[in-house]
Nucleic acid binder design. Structure first.
Length: 425
DNA sequence: TCTGGGGTCCTAGGACCC
DNA sequence: TCTGGGGTCCTAGGACCC
């Protein structure tokens, strides 16, 4: 077995139980206590501490089902606090970028990084140092999986988390036989990019685990499935097909939507809710100097009830704009078209698509000038005082559609008024 | 009673053009 | 009025991810 290899080495750095870890940074008293974080509207469990996993509470379990059990176990439960998690994510990523030659921010709690060094021991030492650094600088524990490709790094990360003796760092073995052995006990659904559907499909073709897929003829996989699966199979063999993307292309669309705290029936109740989501989307446009050339509005009933079901949506292509009032006029018109009366709506939302960079306003109609200045003023005030300093009045009129958030922790790092207070005793 | 939100990529099929 | 094949673009829907 060679401990030196010329293969480039990637690593997947993944924050452990990320949202829970964020909550614990400011609540060290919860270090050994079962902790769970709920989705918006306090609907499902979306992050679990080790203790909660031990209880057997699965990811995505509705809170109303596992709530009693969590209470019996003395668990502490939080509503999700995205400003806090976003801020911690930023800190973790910046720490990685300061230490690693190349970094791809993959999600709020994961990054692919390039690991320097030609020997496994050297790389693992680097990874170990990186792990300690992130923990020291941010308070967030991470796991690191090392491998020559992204798909293998994902699997290595799983082992880093699973194996106690790994202490958060695990390398995919270089030796082909040992690696094959490892892959042969890896079910298809553990592979990044293969969900339940594809796993079933591949099994009927005779591929039962990751080793089978790695050994299969790539052309055959292309034939049976598609190029995505073919690339995954090649990556399982150690042939890189997915490169490290340090810069991501700007998003082409954005969605803002929420479930309501209680069902809504009337257009007059839906408009303020939609107005709030639209305003969030508009803020994104302004922050990133974008305009939208299309808008879609959707609203629907609960997926979980048998009574009247309805999923309505309407869209329109529009002149590229970042004007809040114009967007709102379109959104409300579309809402009106998609709306059916007598239906219990549990969620609505708006999608802005065809996003493009804001052009200098060479064609600015003078009639629009005051409105552009007004928008500029709003953006300025929001940047200085926070987004809630100014909102369209009608969005405040009905609090009915507001989602439940009964367990939210303070926004320790993003609101002056919610800074943690350290007392001397 | 109570079940999240925000994305990407690929494919198939239709419209249209040369 | 008859005749063919191939390319591009767009959209809807499926699958997957965190």
């Amino acid at each position: 077995m060679s401990s030196t290899s010329s293969e480039p080495c990637l690593a997947l750095v993944d924050c452990n139980n990320f949202y829970v870890s964020c909550e614990r940074v400011f609540r060290p008293d919860l270090a050994k206590v079962p902790v769970a974080v709920l989705s918006n509207n306090d609907g499902c469990v979306i992050a679990r501490s080790e203790e909660v996993k031990q209880l057997g509470v699965a990811m995505g379990t509705p809170y109303f089902q596992c709530g009693p059990e969590l209470r019996r176990a003395g668990a502490v439960v939080f509503s999700s606090n995205y400003p806090l998690y976003g801020d911690f994510s930023q800190r973790v990523m910046q720490t990685l970028e300061a230490q690693c030659p190349r970094v791809e921010r993959y999600s709020i709690d994961e990054a692919f990084v390039e690991i320097p060094g030609s020997e496994q021991t050297e790389r693992e030492a680097f990874a170990r140092q990186l792990r300690e650094r992130v923990l020291r600088d941010t308070g967030i524990p991470v796991s690191i999986g090392l491998a020559p490709t992204k798909v293998l790094a994902k699997l290595a990360n799983r082992q880093a988390k699973r194996r106690k003796e790994a202490a958060g760092i695990w390398s995919m073995p270089d030796d082909p036989e040992i690696r094959q052995q490892q892959l042969s006990v890896t079910p298809l659904t553990d592979i990044w990019g293969i969900g339940r559907r594809w796993a079933r499909r591949l099994e009927t073709e005779g591929w039962q685990n990751a080793a089978d897929l790695a050994a299969a003829d790539p052309a055959m996989i292309r034939l049976v499935a598609n190029v995505v699966l073919q690339r995954i199979a090649l990556e399982l063999r150690g042939e890189p097909c997915l490169s490290l993307e340090e810069t991501s292309p700007p998003p082409r669309s954005l969605v803002r939507s929420r479930s309501f705290g209680q069902p809504l029936y009337q257009l007059t109740e839906l408009r303020p809710a939609l107005g709030r989501y639209l305003q969030r989307g508009w803020e994104h446009l302004r922050r990133h100097h974008l305009r939208a050339s299309g808008i879609q509005v959707f609203l629907h009933t609960s997926r979980f009830h048998r009574e009247v079901r309805y999923f309505g949506s309407r869209q329109a292509v529009i002149e590229p704009t970042d004007d809040l009032w114009e967007l709102q006029r379109c959104a409300f018109a579309l809402l009106q078209q998609a709306y059916r009366s007598g239906v219990a709506y549990t969620r609505c939302g708006v999608m802005l698509f065809g996003l493009e960079p804001d052009q200098p306003s060479w064609n600015m109609d003078t009639a629009w000038q005051p409105r552009a200045e007004l928008q500029q003023a709003i953006t300025g005030l929001q940047q200085r005082w926070g987004r809630n300093v100014l909102q369209l009045a009608h969005t405040l009129t009905a609090a009915k559609g507001l989602p439940l958030q009964q367990h939210r922790s303070p926004r320790y790092t993003t609101q002056w008024s919610e800074l943690p207070v350290i007392g001397l005793h």
